[in-house]
C-alpha cells in the first residue's frame, strides 16, 4: 500500500519538473497502475495526465510516442499497426486485459525500466530513443543500462521510420500472466537486431547472436548456431515464473520462431 501526501497535475512538463525537484520524495505518475503494487511513502505525486504528453505522431523520419500514451493507444494506433510488422501493437496485446492497458502508459513503463515488460523488448529491437526532459535524447539501450543519474521525466520515445520488419515472441503459461521470457527481432536494411527481456532482468541486446546473423548466410544451420550463441551470451535468472535453465532452453525456441517469421515475411 502506498501513501501520497500531495498530488498535483501540472499543465506542462516544465512545471512538472519544477515539482519533481522541489521535494525529496516526489514521484512522477504515468498510469500509476504498477506503483499501486508497491509500498512507498510519496510526499508529492506528479501526474502528467494534463501535460499534453498523450500522443502518437508520425513525422517524416520518425514516430514519436508521448510518455502518456497508454498501451491501449499504442495497441489501437493505425500508425503503429502499419509500422514494422505492427510489432508494438502485437507486443502489447497479451498484457493482462484491455482495461489495464487503457491505464498503463509508455512513460511509466519505460522510465521504470521494468524487467517483465514486453513493450521495452520490442522498442529495444527497434533501436528506439528516449527523450528525457533534462537528459535529452538517449538510446533506449543505453538508458536501460544506466538509467537516469538524477531525477528526470521521460517526455517521449522516438522510433526511426525505417522500412523494416520486426517480430515479437513471448512465452507465457497462462495467457493472463506476465512473460516468462520475451524476444524481439527487427530487420532493417538487411541488418538484424535482437532484444531479449523478462530474463527476468530487464531487456538487453543479444549482440553476439546479432553479429553472427549479420555476418553469415542465413540457413537452418546458421539459425541453429545463432540460437546457441544467443542462449549462451544471455544471463538468465530464476523467479517464481521460471528457472534460468528453462529460460535458457526456450530462448532458443523463441529466437528460431522469430527468425523464421522474419524470413517467411521476406518470401
Amino acid at each position: 500500500m502506498i501513501t501520497i501526501k500531495e498530488y498535483v497535475m501540472p499543465k506542462n512538463i516544465d512545471k512538472a519538473y519544477e515539482y519533481l525537484i522541489s521535494k525529496k520524495n516526489s514521484m512522477i505518475f504515468g498510469g500509476g497502475a504498477f506503483i499501486r503494487m508497491g509500498s512507498k511513502n510519496i510526499a508529492l505525486g506528479i501526474d502528467l495526465s494534463k501535460a499534453n504528453l498523450r500522443y502518437i505522431n508520425e513525422q517524416d523520419n520518425e514516430i514519436e510516442i508521448g510518455a502518456m500514451a497508454t498501451f491501449g493507444d499504442i495497441e489501437r494506433s493505425e500508425i503503429l499497426k502499419r509500422f514494422s510488422g505492427g510489432i508494438l501493437s502485437i507486443a502489447i496485446k497479451d498484457i493482462v486485459g484491455i482495461q489495464l492497458r487503457n491505464i498503463v502508459t509508455l512513460g511509466g513503463t519505460v522510465y521504470s525500466r521494468y524487467g517483465f515488460s514486453d513493450l521495452i523488448t520490442a522498442l529495444l529491437a527497434l533501436d528506439a530513443k528516449v527523450k528525457l526532459y533534462k537528459g535529452g535524447v538517449r538510446t533506449l539501450e543505453e538508458f536501460l543500462e544506466n538509467g537516469s543519474k538524477s531525477k528526470d521525466i521521460l517526455e517521449k520515445v522516438i522510433i526511426s521510420k525505417t522500412d523494416g520488419f520486426s517480430v515479437f515472441k513471448s512465452m507465457r503459461n497462462s495467457k493472463g500472466d506476465y512473460a516468462i521470457l520475451n524476444l524481439a527481432i527487427s530487420k532493417v536494411d538487411g541488418k538484424y537486431r535482437i532484444a531479449i527481456g523478462a530474463r527476468p532482468q530487464r531487456a538487453i541486446i543479444s549482440s553476439q547472436a546479432m553479429d553472427f546473423l549479420n555476418k553469415n548466410q542465413i540457413n537452418d544451420k546458421a539459425i541453429e548456431k545463432a540460437s546457441n550463441i544467443l542462449a549462451s551470451e544471455t544471463v538468465f535468472g530464476s523467479n517464481p515464473r521460471g528457472s534460468s535453465k528453462y529460460r535458457h532452453e526456450i530462448s532458443k525456441v523463441l529466437f528460431k520462431r522469430a527468425i523464421e517469421e522474419v524470413m517467411a515475411n521476406e518470401n
Partner: peptide, 16 residues
C-alpha cells in the same frame, strides 16, 4: 507464500 496475488497466482483466463 510468494504466489499471493492474482498477479502471481494464475487462475485460468478465458483465452487459456
Amino acid at each position: 507464500l510468494m504466489t499471493d496475488t492474482f498477479m502471481e497466482y494464475k487462475i485460468p483466463t478465458r483465452v487459456d
